[in-house]
Design a protein around this nucleic acid. Structure first.
Length: 278
DNA sequence: CTCCAGGAGTATC
DNA sequence: GATACTCATGGA
């Protein structure tokens, strides 16, 4: 492999970021990780304040790495805005955990599979979908598969989707792949305001509050998005908004108002904290 | 065996 | 708006 290296000048923890449950297209390999992102397939490893990477399919440049891992976000500046016991603890424990900027469709597919599921199963579902409906890639490191495009997934029958092991999510994949094939643009949502982008996403059958916020936060550059799942509900009701009878919908609005412009970063740290400390 | 999991749609009040 | 039921499947 042909390696390229560049220095990090801000907090970043590659392993922690990949393991944080926002991105599922990776696996450990030697001292680092293999990553599938759009048409790119590459190796990456971290050594203290350096990243070393090598393209396997479709050449990767440092700018793409910076974009995928949001290395231009002022993470230290965001840390400095936090001042409560939970976030103060979380930023010490998880220093360098960053949000990623994934492909919107790949992110949508991932978080449709995430409903009432868990990380190992989500990863397995995505691999099965890739092998059955995606594109085969032949590399010197073995065969790998790309996730199916909306057009490729729309070729699958409802029965084939059920047989791929995604359970009740099959009907959502079936309808949404067709809605996007018919002209719904995920990428166009980047250019409108958060409330409108969220409303439009939720017109897709199977995308509700939580999945919409995941897509907006992890792929469409809306750092104010604040996905509220079971873990976030626990920690918000326990430490931030106790005593109120609050639905996930109301908790999300309260949290966005409370945590502000970079609420999404706070959410990622709270999610990690809740999963490992509660 | 039962219970629940990074939810969402639907019916019902 | 809030609650209850349903949807598939795998793991504890």
């Amino acid at each position: 492999m042909n390696f390229d290296t560049f220095p990090l000048e801000a907090p970043f923890n590659l392993k922690l970021t990949l393991e944080s449950g926002q991105f599922f297209q990776w696996r450990p390999y030697t001292n680092g990780f293999l990553i599938q992102h759009r048409k790119h397939f590459f190796y990456i490893e971290q050594e203290k304040h350096f990243l070393r990477f090598a393209s396997i399919l479709d050449e990767v440049h440092p700018e793409l790495i910076r974009d995928l891992f949001r290395l231009n976000d002022d993470l230290q500046g965001i840390y400095n805005q936090w001042d409560d016991p939970i976030l103060n603890t979380a930023r010490e424990a998880y220093r360098g955990l960053r949000l990623m900027r994934q492909d919107p469709w790949e992110c949508t597919l991932s978080f449709l599979c995430s409903m009432a599921s868990n990380i190992p199963r989500i990863t397995g579902n995505l691999r099965t979908l890739s092998e059955r409906f995606g594109t085969v890639q032949d590399t010197e490191h073995g065969v790998s598969y790309r996730l199916p495009s909306p057009q490729e997934l729309a070729q699958a029958s409802l029965d084939e989707l059920y047989e791929s092991g995604v359970g009740f999510r099959a009907k959502y994949l079936y309808r949404i792949s067709r809605e996007i094939q018919a002209g719904f643009s995920l990428n166009a949502l980047q250019d409108i305001a958060y409330p409108e982008a969220k409303t439009q996403l939720m017109t897709l059958h199977g995308i509700g509050e939580k999945v919409a916020d995941c897509i907006l936060l992890f792929s469409l550059n809306f750092l104010e998005a604040f996905p509220v799942d079971t873990w976030i509900t626990k920690i918000l009701k326990q430490y931030y908004f106790p005593g109120r009878k609050s639905s996930p919908y109301k908790l999300a609005a309260l949290a966005r108002a409370h945590f502000g412009e970079y609420a999404g970063y706070a959410q990622q740290y709270l999610f990690h904290y809740a999963r490992h400390m509660l």
